[in-house]
């Protein structure tokens, strides 16, 4: 197997707020292999963003606290390393692309200045060559008239162009890992298609490992090698991309796939995942999906199922098929319909 470039173990992040402790990330462990494209899927509050932000200690502390865990990147632990050393990792060896480029770009500085800033801090490229390198980066992400664009301010660009600039910036220092947090969510669908196309091309060219966070199962279906599904601050399922979509093992993944309509076929009624997302003020002591799960039985309400490897690369946190020793049967999907009802 390939060597992991990033290995996260038992990450726990909490936020101490006035209303109580928010258990945002509850023991997350995963690996990212070199050059791999990892999709992370979850709804709001599932902990997908906080997990990735915690790795680079980008969450506001306080109120945020990283209670436990290690994140081994290139042999050193991101969570315990000196903050100065971490700075050289952030934006250098690990790039970050945020959802909203307008809030992540500085409005009073030109695009060119901001890209050159990254080059100045993280690379040894001499000052004279930086404008040329910045221009090359913009060309790489398909921005027309790149040289003129360098003199533009962020507000002079459209949303899609701004996101391209963000991608160019994250690539500036040839990172080993890029973490993209819902990079296309704020964009129109035709612009999203442009960005996906660019990312697909760049991946083949550069071989950078990518973690792509999204709530849209469609976006990563054609991009990811492997997918992690998060719920209530935990990983509930992890699988290579095809098995995950074809034969989801966790009831939440199964419900999620059934609840989204497809543009390429007219389906029947959408699967209703009844109820509401979990309350994160309580420490999860049982399966956090149990209150919404059509298969839940007593054990699910008493214990928190561990994430167990079922087959190579495939981990699931669910008692249902473990207890019953049932093989997954796609026809079983019908069972979900039985419990339709509004939450």
């Amino acid at each position: 197997m390939t060597t992991p470039v990033l290995e996260v173990n038992d990450l726990k992040t909490r936020f101490h707020t006035q209303d109580g402790v928010v258990h945002a990330v509850n023991g997350v462990s995963f690996k990212l292999n070199r050059g791999e494209f990892l999709g992370v899927v979850g709804e709001s509050g599932s902990g997908k963003s906080v997990t990735m932000m915690s790795l680079l200690r980008l969450i506001p502390m306080p109120p945020g606290v990283i209670e436990s865990g290690t994140a081994i990147f290139d042999g050193s632990d991101l969570l315990s390393m000196d903050i100065e050393d971490l700075r050289s990792v952030r934006g250098g060896r690990i790039g970050f692309i945020f959802q909203d480029p307008l809030t992540s770009l500085n409005p009073v500085l030109t695009i060119g200045f901001q890209i050159e800033e990254a080059l100045r801090i993280h690379t040894s490229i001499p000052e004279k060559e930086r404008p040329k390198k910045a221009q090359e980066l913009l060309e790489l992400v398909g921005i027309p008239a790149a040289k003129q664009r360098l003199r533009n301010y962020p507000h002079e660009l459209s949303g899609g162009m701004r996101q391209r600039v963000m991608i160019a910036m994250s690539l500036a220092c040839s990172p080993q890992v890029i973490i993209a947090d819902e990079p296309t969510t704020a964009l129109d669908v035709t612009i999203q298609a442009q960005i996906i196309e660019i990312v697909r091309d760049l991946r083949e060219q550069l071989g950078t490992a990518v973690i792509w966070i999204t709530h849209d199962l469609g976006v990563i279906a054609g991009l990811a090698d492997r997918v992690i599904v998060m719920y209530g601050g935990q990983i509930v399922e992890e699988a290579p991309v095809r098995p995950l979509y074809k034969t989801p093992l966790h009831p939440y993944t199964e419900g999620l796939l059934g609840s989204v309509p497809r543009v390429d076929q007219k389906g029947s009624k959408l699967v209703n995942i009844k109820g509401q997302p979990p309350n994160l003020y309580q420490e999860p002591e049982s399966c956090s999906f149990a209150p919404r799960c059509p298969y839940a039985f007593d054990r699910c309400r008493q214990e928190n199922p561990p994430l167990i490897e079922r087959s190579p690369g495939r981990r699931v946190a669910c008692f249902w098929d473990l207890e019953r020793n049932t093989e997954y049967d796609p026809g079983n999907r019908a069972r979900l319909e039985v419990v339709e009802g509004d939450g």
């Binding site: 849209d216 054609g222 390429d264």
Partner: peptide
């Protein structure tokens, strides 16, 4: 054609 489909084979 721009709308992604949640199915790796189709994509």
């Amino acid at each position: 054609s721009a709308v992604p489909v949640p199915d790796p084979d189709v994509e």
